[in-house]
Computed example of a mutant assay.
Amino acid sequence: MTPVQPTGRVAQDGSPPPGGLRVAVIGAGSWGTALAAMSSRFCPTLLWARDPATAASLAEHRENRRYLAGVSLPDTLAYTADFDAVGRHLAGPAPALIILGVPVAGLRDTCANVAALLSRHAPGRTDVVWTCKGVDPNTGELPHQIAAAALDAYPDIAQGVLSGPSFAREVAQWLPVALTIASRDPGLRERVVTALHGENVRIYASDDIVGVEVGGALKNVLAIACGVADGQGLGTNARAALITRGLAEMTRLGVAMGARPDTFAGLTGLGDLVLTATGDLSRNRRVGVELGKGQVLADILAQSPHVAEGVRAARAVQSLARRHGVDMPITDAVCALLFEGATAREAVACLLAREPRQETPASDS
């Protein structure tokens, strides 16, 4: 595909540049910005920021100075703070793709706003993809359930989740990355590949939405546990054990909820877990490290502009596990530390005091 011509501008009227698939990314945080930068290399892409000053700064400096300081953004990327400009950008007979770069807490309202936008501008074929990883703490819903309810007036809109082991800063720096697009619609999967796959980016396809989303939610909770162990100086043996047994928890819950077990051996299960539990750029691991050192949760969260989804998701994940009758001791220990007054040392001691058991179910032979 021929790259679009450089623009590096604030979109004034929202009119799309010439080309095939058009992409709009909603949310100018670190991940939304990184995905918009990625997409703009292959398709006409508009990044929407809630704050007009943010959109103007992005266009002037070609840098997200709050979330991705020091990373240059492509000249091919356009910016706006006008939500209706997104509709005008997507309007026309060619297919369009909306990528929602918002956290779980903002997904419901954002999807409702997108539904209203589509009703006003009535573009052609438009797909909606979200990137958030977590569980609604109030309802226990996974992101696909939240999105489906908000977009139910538009049954023809294909929906999907984009996930996998990825730090936004590295993606924006155009370092290699592999992601998974999960959707029951093969056309949507193909269009996401068109928008994002190429050069340093590999996009794999799946139809296991539940498995991909359970992996995305659980890896954040488990990364907090691994960070606690690192903060206490418990060594790499302990970290490896937590990752391995955490993967077992993730798989048990996912299968109980209807996911395929092989999904958790892939990018959105083991891959994302390893990255988030070990990488220095992981905000969830960082929360755990500070907890392991004895810091107070409220103080840790106040020091970062980024959302640590594992904190928001932990209780909801625990509730899902109890609802499905799944044993999840690492998740229980994280919840005890975050919400029940346990110290990091007490949470670790509780895990170590568990009775011995077989690692895998016994064979009948």
Rank of each mutant, 00 (worst) to 15 (best):
I203A: 10
R283H: 03
A217D: 08
E249V: 02
T110C: 11
I203W: 12
A314V: 09
V86Y: 03
A256F: 03
L301N: 06
D51V: 04
Q358H: 13
F264E: 09
G92N: 07
Q5F: 12
K219R: 07
E141A: 14
T110I: 00
A158L: 03
L253Q: 02
P44D: 12
G294A: 05
R62P: 06
Y154D: 07
R283M: 01
P103G: 07
K293R: 15
P3E: 09
V317G: 05
T360L: 14
A55Y: 01
A195V: 03
L270K: 12
C132L: 08
G32R: 11
L352M: 15
V326G: 06
V221S: 04
L275H: 07
P176E: 10
V317D: 06
H89R: 04
I209T: 15
I209A: 11
V289W: 05
R22W: 02
V228A: 00
A11M: 08
V102S: 06
E309S: 05
P305L: 06
H61D: 10
A316V: 04
R283F: 00
C226V: 05
E199T: 11
L253P: 02
L338Y: 00
T45M: 10
G134R: 11
E346W: 01
R286T: 14
A37P: 02
R252Y: 01
T131P: 03
Q295H: 03
L218F: 15
Q12D: 12
R169W: 02
V10P: 04
C43R: 15
F83G: 05
A148S: 10
A321Y: 05
K133L: 08
A53Y: 05
A85S: 13
R9N: 11
L273A: 11
Q358L: 14
L162F: 12
Y79R: 08
H61Y: 13
V4S: 14
P3M: 06
A178M: 07
G231R: 00
R323Y: 01
S166A: 13
P137R: 12
L188Q: 05
R283K: 02
L118M: 13
G288W: 00
I146S: 06
A223Y: 03
T126F: 02
E309A: 04
P176L: 07
D207Q: 12
A49S: 15
D109V: 02
R323M: 06
A344S: 11
S39E: 05
A158H: 07
M328S: 01
T263G: 09
G8C: 12
D127N: 08
T331A: 13
G19N: 09
L90C: 06
R184P: 01
Q173C: 12
A91C: 04
A178S: 15
A344T: 00
S304T: 15
R189L: 07
G235V: 02
R62N: 07
A122F: 00
A105H: 10
